[in-house]
Amino acid sequence: MSKNEFQKKLKTEKINTGEYIIVVDYLTDEPLVMGCTQQNEVWKIYETKQRGGHTIIKELADEYAAFDYFYQLLLSRHNYLIQS
């Protein structure tokens, strides 16, 4: 899915991301962020921990593949949180 489709889907489905904030426009080292952004024509899915600093989870060349992967990642987190 595209970035715009992802953002719409995230709002309509009300996915629980716990304490994480979702960022899709830039890479940040702020604490507790999950994000997807493009750098040098590569889409990077990343997360930050409580003390900041980011970890790249996956890099993909295609926007649609990146946001599909990111959505599935958030959905698995959502399912984990609602079962706990």
Rank of each mutant, 00 (worst) to 15 (best):
Y64L: 04
W43F: 14
S76N: 13
G53D: 06
I21Q: 11
E30N: 13
L74T: 09
S76P: 11
V42D: 09
E59A: 01
T28Y: 08
Y26A: 02
Y20I: 00
T12S: 06
K14N: 12
G18W: 09
G53S: 04
L81H: 02
I15H: 00
I22Y: 09
N40A: 07
M1P: 06
I45E: 11
E19D: 07
D62E: 10
L75Y: 13
E59D: 01
K9F: 00
Y46W: 05
I56W: 04
I57T: 05
L60R: 00
Y69V: 05
E30F: 12
A65R: 06
S76Q: 14
A65N: 12
T55H: 06
L73E: 14
Q38E: 14
T17W: 04
Q72S: 09
K8L: 11
W43K: 09
L73I: 07
Y69Q: 03
K58I: 04
K3S: 07
F6P: 10
R51P: 00
Y71W: 14
D29E: 15
M34Y: 10
E13C: 01
H78T: 14
K58L: 02
L73N: 06
Q72G: 02
N40T: 10
I45Q: 13
T48A: 03
D25W: 02
Y69K: 03
V33L: 00
T48F: 08
Y80R: 04
T12Q: 07
I45W: 14
E5S: 08
